[in-house]
Write a protein that binds this DNA or RNA. Sequence first.
DNA 1: TTGAAAGCGGTACCAA
DNA 2: TTGGTACCGCTTTCAA
Lengths: 349, 349
Amino acid sequence: MDNAEQKSPQRRRTSARATVTIRDVARHAGVSVATVSRALRGSDLVHPATRERVDAAIEELRFTPSQLGRSLAERRHAANGIVFPDLSGPYYADVVLGYEEVAATLGRSVLILSTHNRESADEMVLELAGRVDGLAVFGRTVHDDVVAEIVQRGVPVVLMARTEIEGADSVRTENVAAAASVVEHLLADGHRRMSFVGDPSDSTDVAERWAGFRGALAQSGAEVPERTIPAGFKEDDGARVAADLVADGLPDVVVCANDELALGLSVALAEQGVQVPGDVAVTGWDDVMAARYAGLTTVRQPMREMGGRAARMLDARISGDRSEPRHDVLTTQLVVRHSCGPHPKEAHR
Amino acid sequence: MDNAEQKSPQRRRTSARATVTIRDVARHAGVSVATVSRALRGSDLVHPATRERVDAAIEELRFTPSQLGRSLAERRHAANGIVFPDLSGPYYADVVLGYEEVAATLGRSVLILSTHNRESADEMVLELAGRVDGLAVFGRTVHDDVVAEIVQRGVPVVLMARTEIEGADSVRTENVAAAASVVEHLLADGHRRMSFVGDPSDSTDVAERWAGFRGALAQSGAEVPERTIPAGFKEDDGARVAADLVADGLPDVVVCANDELALGLSVALAEQGVQVPGDVAVTGWDDVMAARYAGLTTVRQPMREMGGRAARMLDARISGDRSEPRHDVLTTQLVVRHSCGPHPKEAHR
DNA sequence: TTGAAAGCGGTACCAA
DNA sequence: TTGGTACCGCTTTCAA
């Protein structure tokens, strides 16, 4: 009894406590915290009458259990993370949408992190990994060893649009065959001289698209460009390419690594009096909303599904339903629009 | 002494502990947890030699401090939340981008929640509120009383694109004057009969746009429609409106509550042989990427800045730098493009 | 059915 | 400079 007295030689730091805790509820209801906890969890080891008293106390005190205390005790965060290079652009937003949607359904909150090109990206990701039960990592936002470190800590990781890493799941979209189908379509339309805009060292996706592009051209006997025209993923990058293209002489087609690039390029070309597709055909990748309105031929990717799939894969790992890694590849689809119209020479025949 | 013995009548549940704790590090380094904690926090009350031993132990054990333990002790989450009706569409993505960017800079993680139209939205938001130090809430995703409840719990809230609530900060964009400038521009182009598509009861933004629209028309002496043509915010909603519009007779202009609506409407009209802007002019709102490529006249809103602003407002409240609520209104800008070309009659003069 | 108490993994006060 | 230890708020044995 005097034990209780001895127990608090140290005062509470704040005399007026802001938050109502489970202990307050227990005291108010005249029961132990264990009972309150049980009532909270809906355990059937609580007498109905007792439960009523507890509920009343909870109501009266406007008590909300602390997620922190709960998580610490349960040793789980009930939250997943997702890491992006950059949330701008329509592409990532859709993936996050799918991810969040599924995660929410599974009772998990979602923490997002955009690494931009911050120096501190690695640390930020490691920090994030300490706040979640599972982590989705997009593209080359994080170094391989950081991912490995996270996996080793026991946090399930699913990689999106990135080459596989030991111990981590992955979801990607099909690129090689899609690139080939783009090339084949263009060839059928009479186009021959094709350039590829994008930087294969930027991402696995671009590398695969470039490989598929070259492969299909080689197989058809058409001229295969030595290298890509390097560029980022933004409209501005496309605009910059346009200038060089006009100066160096136009090919029949410019296959771009993504839609924003293709759209920026097209606009810049038009400003310089180059007609699309009349003078040069242009294709993109992703099928973002603007591509539809710009009439851009592109490859549609199931972004939202990719996000959802990632969330589900993580859930399976977290809940222990699956332990072997899994690697999914989602199919993509060529969407032919106006920007790749038949080559003039072909059309004249 | 025997006290220590008595202290563990209860075994650890897991014999092989997965996670390395601060106690392990302390033991390994031959110091107390207090010292490890100090070393961790970079306190200068640690002897260099001691610090070295601690660092070595941390390194060797690959110790990472638990965010949960830390948060519980520090009584702060170091995380902010943001609540959306729906993350789809380019609009919200940009706001999140700005929010995350600033929050990350301020050392806070970001939890996102899309309420969609889930029944359980209120509970989900309340749950989220328990995981963060501050919360940004978008539009009418959450009932007023839920917001009030969260504010009362002491969690700073900033409302975005929503009418003010006692005790919460807010960031909005200017709507009334912008709507008036749209109308004035259209009037100057010779358009007279204007319809407004959107549901004012959907959001504060739409209500204000509708009010500005009516006000400007009334002031000009032009015909003021009795009511809006109700519609949601998606392309599909626009398409549905198109059918009715054609059946009921076209006005000179259709002013839409957002871009997606306007774009969906335009496409559907074109499919029915109605020319934009020849037969009817169309305007949108937001200036999303697709609007540029579709040549849609619209009102540009600083979405990204709105997100960033919200994050900063929360930070000020959380850190106690400010206690009185603040309400920011961001300026918007009319962007004239092809879709609202001069009215035919006007053009012929 | 209930309660006491030992965690979960840190932080920070107090005393040494 | 350090160590001991009482928290932070909740969950879950174990015993009654």
